[in-house]
Design a binder for these strands. Sequence first.
DNA 1: CATGGGATTGACT
DNA 2: GTCAATCCCATGC
Length: 197
Amino acid sequence: MVADPPHDAAALRALLQGDVVRAAAGLVGCRITHGIHELVIVETEAYHQSESACHGYGGHTPRAAKLRRPAGYSYVYLSYGMHQLVNVVVESEQVAAAVLLRGAVALGPGYAADPVPGQVGAVPGPGRLGKALQVGAPHDGIDLLAGGSLRLEPADRADRITGRELRAGPRIGISKATELPWRFCLAGSKGVSTPRL
DNA sequence: CATGGGATTGACT
DNA sequence: GTCAATCCCATGC
């Protein structure tokens, strides 16, 4: 499997409006920015209401409603009482689905722009990603495609992600629907959490 | 209304 | 490898 992230805003929006699994694969290589904090996404997981590991599984609960936002909105929630996990809501408002951002490589102040092997600024793990981005509860429900302070951006050609090897495997830290290979990561990136694929 | 289990991580044995 | 920290929310009485 080869990484092929969108390189312009229209392609990014179209990706997010489509299938959640393809969106998860396509977000690897895209950037997420919050003020001066800028990350290249290197690991993601797909979650869909049709499978039991998803927060939107099994009906219309308050939590599930957060996954039924328009494509491109954020879903940020507290895990284990201490980690802010960042998701990008995808597909339509009729469907509860989102992509969890699990790993990244930091750009910007103090970091070297080197998303692939040997890099500085690795941000492996969803908890670390939320912290590196400095997001929390106030950032839940934000339109990430609206050009605000917290925003999702297409892949930058300079990052040289397109064409690199993308690996798929089972999702991490869940006990249900573990058979689905819905975790995606950029091979060889130190921004990928353990266990590496 | 009370309870228990996480889409985790870092420190410690 | 094991464990605690810490809180939202789904589930069950």
